[in-house]
């Protein structure tokens, strides 16, 4: 008998939430199986990206948690369509993000840090003295933002409805014989 994924998710949320310094949503994402298997990302990489997105977006109180959006599955699709060098580079960058707090003296990996420590780490790399570190931070942060805010429900919440835009286009094309 297949286990009930919703029940598993609830248990995971409960366990992860009870562990201080652990990012609960990560466990949800790994177990819930909502997005199926990723094509380009390993589960660990997906988890790191989700954690990073949660950190830079800080989705509360009016925004849904990362796990309730398609941010990670979109990022996976994006990588799948990327040229191999960029894909490899971005995956490596995710691991760098994960161990970055260790290198920066935070004592733990990104996903083991509390929310306040994670954002402190992000701010530190965003304003690092080394310009290349700042540029890399901008790159991965931008990807997290676009992955998260491109979720349909979030865009609708902010006033942009892609389906309505498409529907208007279809109607106009039909009415005026546009290609």
């Amino acid at each position: 008998m297949n286990p009930d994924p919703i029940a598993i998710r609830q248990v995971a949320v409960k366990r992860a939430s009870s562990r201080p310094g652990t990012w609960a949503t990560v466990a949800c994402l790994l177990i819930r199986g909502q997005h199926g298997r990723f094509q380009a990302l390993s589960p660990r990489e997906a988890s790191i990206f989700a954690c990073l997105t949660d950190t830079v977006v800080a989705p509360r109180p009016w925004l849904p948690p990362v796990s309730d959006t398609d941010a990670v599955s979109f990022f996976d699709r994006w990588l799948t369509r990327s040229p191999a060098p960029q894909r490899m580079g971005l995956r490596a960058l995710l691991y760098l993000v994960e161990v970055g707090p260790l290198l920066a003296g935070f004592g733990r990996r990104l996903r083991r840090l509390g929310a306040a420590e994670r954002i402190a780490f992000v701010h530190r790399v965003e304003h690092a003295r080394a310009p290349h570190i700042r540029q890399l931070a901008k790159l991965i942060r931008g990807m997290a933002f676009v992955s998260y805010y491109g979720d349909d429900a979030i865009m609708r919440g902010l006033g942009y409805d892609p389906d309505r835009n498409l529907e208007r286009g279809r109607a106009l094309r039909a009415a005026e014989g546009r290609p």
Binding site: T55, V56, V57, A58, P59, R60, W62, L63, I119, V122, H123, E126, R141, G142, M143, F145, V146, Y148, Y149, G150, I154, M155, L158, G159, Y160, P162
Partner: peptide, 25 residues
Amino acid sequence: GPPDYVAMSLPVSGDAHRELMARYR
């Protein structure tokens, strides 16, 4: 541009970014 395009280009992150995006309009 639409929200995802604008979100990508804002120069802040964390709470400051969220508060700005809440005022996207």
